[in-house]
Structure formats: C-alpha cells, structure tokens
Design a binder for these strands. Structure first.
Lengths: 223, 223
DNA sequence: TGTCGTTTGTGAGAACAATCACAAGCCCGG
DNA sequence: CCGGGCTTGTGATTGTTCTCACAAACGACA
C-alpha cells in the first residue's frame, strides 16, 4: 500500500539483496525465505521483509519469495533494466583499475569514455578505450548519452571536474577523490573515500587498544 | 560532560573535518568557526558543533576553534597518532591501485605486505613491496604487527581470506570484494562496494526519469 | 474441509541521527 | 567595567532507521 518513498537505507541494501538473489538463481533455487536471504545479505530477517515490503507485496506467506520475480522487481526498481553509460575522469592508478574493473559491466554499467588532462596519458588505450582530453568531455557526454561521471582525479581538481560534468548534463557523480565537491541539489553525488574508511577502522582499533591499556593499568594498580 | 560515546555518524565525519583542518592549517589559519568548517566539510554548522562537542569543549565562544588544537584532538581521537600497518590481499587491478595509492601513507597507514595466491603474481614487486603467498600471511601479520587487512580478491575468495586474516589476529578489515563477509563480532569490517554505489546512483536516475516521463505522459493527455 | 506449521507484512516502540533555537560565554571598543 | 556583536555548546524537537512481535495468509496433509 505504500505509494513510493523507499528509504535511503533500504535503497542502499537492495543491491546486496540483488547479488544474493543472483547467487540463488544460479544455484537453481526457486524461492527464498526472508531468513535465508538475510543470512546471505548479512542483515536480519525483519529488515529484509520491511525493505522488500517497500517494493510491494511480492512474497507468499508460508512459502517465501519467488527468486526470479524478486530479482526482476529489484532490478527494475534500481533502474538496472537499462544500461547506463559512464565516464571516468582521471586516469591514474585508481582510474585505470576502475576502467578495467569487470564488475561494472556485469551490472549494466558501460564505461563509455575516459578523460584526463595529462598529455602523456591522452591517446593511450586503457581497458579497450582511448583516453581523451578533458576538453572533449562535453561533446562526448552528449553524443554518448553518458549519465554517470566517475571522478578519480587528485583532490584539488575534483571540484572543477565535477562542475564540468554537471555542465555537460551529468546528474550523477561517483567521487573517489578525497575532497568535498559541491554541486547543484538536483545532482546526485556519492563519495567513496578510501582513507576515510581506514580512519574509521583506526578509531575502533584505537578505542579497543585504549580500553585494553586502561584495564591493564587498573590491574597493575590492584583495582 | 559527555563521557565517551561518539556516535558512528560523527566518527564517519571526523576524517572529513580533519582534512578540512589540514587545509586551513596549511593556509595559515589560526582559528575557524563552525560555519566555515561546515562549508569546507559540506555539512551544516550545527552538526559540526554537535560532532565536535562529543570530543570535548575545544572551541571558544565568540571566536571559534583553534585549528592546530582541534587537529591534534581529532587526530588523537581517531587513533592517528600512531602508524597502522596494513596488508593487502589480492593483487589484481584494484589491489595494485591500492598498493600504489599515496593517500594511505599520508594519513599514517603503512602498507606493509601484499598477498596473492597466483604464482604469476607472487614475487612481483608492486609499489615497492614483493607480493607474498597467502600462506605466509599469518607469520607476516604477526611479525610486522599488521592491524588492518584489505581484501581486494574476487568475491568467491573474500570470506576465506577474511577468516585467514582474523585467524592471524587482524581485528579490522576493509573489504573491497563484492561479497558479504561474516566474522566474529569483535572484528570490525567495513565494505567499499563500487558497483553498489553505481546502483544507488542508478536508482535515483531511474526515479527522476520515471517522474519526467510520467509528467510528459500527463502533459500529452492534457491533464 | 479443517487443522497445523510456516512465513510474510506491518503496527508499535526503541534507538539513533539531524536540526533547531537560544542561553552562556567570549572579545573588543569605549 | 560595561554593552554589543559574535560564536559555541547543548537541551528540545523532529525525522529516520531498526527491531520486535504478532495477526494474517498460505500450503500441506489428513
């Protein structure tokens, strides 16, 4: 009965369910319970049910969910029934790795263009594509209907590159540069920041270490 | 007054503030207001103040925060006063990019070892380190006091690699493999999943597209 | 057809996060 | 030493997400 307001937290988990369902489908499973799906996705069963309920009532009580049907519904909801064209800007170590990454095409994301500003890199072939100069961005984005821009530049160039992408009509940006980019509110930016992730892990390590040494100190004091 | 219970959401933002503060310090700024810091970090000022208040009262009313002092406090809170040793498992495209990534060492994360199982890769030098066989993991983790494991293997190997890391004593794992890994609850796992990020962007693209075509249909019906 | 075991879908409540709004406190100029 | 402008720190409020718990609905089987 819910019209259409899928929570962000749910949207972020749908791809995880999708992957689990693909595995189940390959294994020949016809149906799956929320409990089994929850185990595969690493969450709890109630969350799975609530998440799936936002898509509609696609389960059967006493039985579970039809794997194929659910696969289709999630695929549709995520907009994966069509191929999205993407461009990578910044062909350094990370840009190259992304350009060669097989996981994108498997999910219907076609890397359609690569850009850089370094003359030493332009013209080079990476992952089957020729690296273009950033100045060609706008034309190529328009011609190739590129919908998603991936920023893998050094941080100081990220804002400018993001602006160029937006200027070219891109409404979705995935930012790997360790920098905050500000764009118009109708543009969707997601960031992946490797060193932030490590710093969060560091916080927890430091904390358990601190607890351990406090306990040790306490022990030595005979407390 | 708050003892010590920094919310996860705050912890995740501290590295962003840290980066902004480093820029300010380089620019010679002595103090910064929550408003300015908020702009640099891409959040709002109230959130900055609340986040920082969890660390203690390090600001001065009417003035702002002392840049250097705040830098030190966040660095300490995140456990970045010490260098953490990390190991990368899986030296494919992504593993290589990570091994060569400069951003880690800048933040005090030293990549101390690389592992793979492919004989063609073992022995190769990547980013100044020799790739070792996964079987050497336990010894090297112990000897080099490696605290963080980075998993960059294909998804089907991620769980086993994570288990080996945990068995070797690693308590923090950064997982780049598109797979769910289950480990003991005292081990911290963070995941970075590139194609999930694209799928989330796809969801929003699809949604705005759907709205646009609904509007168009409505217009043509003369509604 | 009725009963039983199973599993969904969802209201209700708890936990967590974001935001608001303002008193408290600081600096400075007179 | 006082008043005004500014900025922090934080209660209070609102919004979002998670979890619980159970009625409703299904299949199977007698």
């Amino acid at each position: 009965m819910p019209n259409r307001a899928i929570p962000d937290a749910t949207v972020a988990r749908l791809p995880v369910y999708l992957r689990a369902l693909l595995e189940l489908a390959e294994g020949g499973e016809m149906t799956v319970s929320s409990e089994d799906l929850a185990n595969l996705a690493g969450v709890n069963a109630a969350k799975v049910r609530k998440d799936l309920s936002y898509l509609g009532s696609y389960g059967t009580r006493g039985v579970g969910y039809d794997v194929e049907y659910l696969l289709y519904q999630i695929t549709r909801e995520l907009g994966l029934t069509q191929d999205w064209h993407t461009a990578i800007v910044g062909i350094g170590n990370l840009g190259r790795a992304l350009a060669s990454y097989k996981g994108f095409s498997e999910r219907g994301f076609r890397i359609a263009a690569l850009f850089d500003v370094d003359e030493k890199v332009i013209g080079e072939e990476v992952g089957g594509l020729i690296v273009r100069h950033l100045d060609e961005l706008k034309d190529i984005v328009t011609d190739d209907r590129i919908a998603i821009g991936i920023v893998a530049t050094p941080p100081q160039n990220a804002q400018e590159v993001a602006e160029r992408l937006v200027d070219a009509g891109v409404k979705s940006i995935l930012n790997f540069a360790p920098a905050v980019v500000n764009v118009a509110p109708d543009v969707n930016v997601r960031k992946v920041d490797l060193s932030i992730e490590l710093q969060i892990l560091s916080f927890h390590l430091q904390r358990t270490q601190a607890i351990a040494s406090a306990r040790e100190a306490n022990r030595q004091l005979g407390g």
